[in-house]
Design a protein around this nucleic acid. Structure first.
Lengths: 215, 215
DNA sequence: CGTAAACTCAGGAATTTCCCGATTGCCTGT
DNA sequence: ACAGGCAATCGGGAAATTCCTGAGTTTACG
């Protein structure tokens, strides 16, 4: 019996492309598609697929919340997340929501097929890039508080991060916080280590995404 | 003779999906693909396709700048932008850069095929959603207003800005662009002078607001 | 042809980052 | 009460980067 799959992605060409590619796999049958979270949930309720290929960025109800809803109601439906994002917070939340796999849109199609088969066989699938991040987190024993990426940083670190993301120099921050430049440097490198980021530019983007600063 | 097409998108599955779909169209031949702007330009230089299907959000050199480079060098290559974004500023710039068509990833595959044929027949293709925006702008004669700080920077400066906003170091940028570190420094300080900005953090925010890089 | 603008590059001083190590205080489990 | 972990603080010194000043080359255009 073939694996009944539902595609959820807000881009039509993406869905059509996947459908075309999957057509060649005899053991995989695309039973339906949805362009947003809410209709995805309805669709799953209707046709009870074996597996859902889920994008994260969805209008209305995002992929993480959709996954949560689906799994909590239909615990035997597998969700395989196919996302453009490799950020920790997404990964963590997705698995917390009950997903069985996570791979990047950047991957090869063969990997997707492999992931589908792995997940439908009741196993977890992690693409190498994601595995890397997950393992790093595991080694840091910090996975318990990655819910928002917010809590991996200490209060002081978030404070420094915000100032960095506002364009303040290390010296300005030191003056502002009335601590030594050296301490600010330590905080900055600590932040970068934790977030696995190596530049102010990416740090700024992170801060924006996390709502720590604004555009 | 079939239309020779190059696919440019940073997501592998997207490219593979498109390739699979386009395989069924006998008059369209996918001659190559690229995952970022710079290699896209190299690829186009090599194989001289009839048409390039171009994503906007690309690492290193974004779709707008890549289009500009391609068109200015190979004026007979058509560029069809296939983007997730429908913001004015992207549309305006893309056409300013010389693109022949713009459609959303959200479109049906049939529309993409139609657009490819239209564009390769030397005509402009606008998907309905985009046409809507363009017409509205036209009626409002506001197109001049859409350059917003966009024109203060030169093409080279925008190129450097994007790389800075992606977290690249001066040295990395120099290597990438095959110019000296000193030149990159000059560009950076020129950019900062023009924008009256004094930090990478603010520069990054500016680049995000201007659609030169993405979060 | 002359001018302005874009792009390129360098020297050297000033500043910042980076990589080590270290201290203090607080909380936690036993 | 004490060991251990962690957050927050700070420093030295080498390495790297930025900043400031100046300038050559190419390109576009009137």
């Amino acid at each position: 019996m073939s694996i009944k799959v539902v595609l959820v992605d807000d881009h039509n060409v993406m869905r059509e492309g996947l459908r075309a590619l999957l057509k060649n796999e005899s053991d995989i049958e695309v039973a339906g598609e949805a362009a947003d979270g809410r209709s995805a949930f309805r669709l799953v309720s209707e046709i009870k697929p074996d597996l859902v290929i889920m994008d994260i960025a969805l209008p209305g109800l995002n992929g993480m919340e959709t996954t949560r809803k689906i799994i909590s109601k239909f615990s035997d439906v597998k969700v395989l997340v196919l996302s453009a994002y490799s950020e920790r917070r997404f990964i963590f939340r997705v698995f917390k929501a009950g997903a069985s796999g996570y791979l990047l849109k950047d991957c090869a199609f063969e990997e997707l097929v492999c992931a589908i088969r792995t997940v439908s066989a009741n196993r977890i699938y992690l693409s190498p890039e994601i595995a890397d991040i997950v393992v790093k987190d595991y080694l840091r024993q910090s996975s318990k508080n990655n819910t928002s990426g917010f809590s991996v940083l200490t209060a002081r670190e978030r404070e420094v991060l915000q100032l960095l993301a506002e364009g303040k120099t290390t010296k300005q921050i030191a003056l502002l916080l009335k601590i030594s430049v050296k301490t600010v440097e330590t905080h900055r490198s600590q932040i970068m280590d934790k977030l696995n980021i190596r530049s102010i530019a990416e740090l700024t983007k992170y801060a924006i995404r996390e709502g720590i600063t604004s555009l």
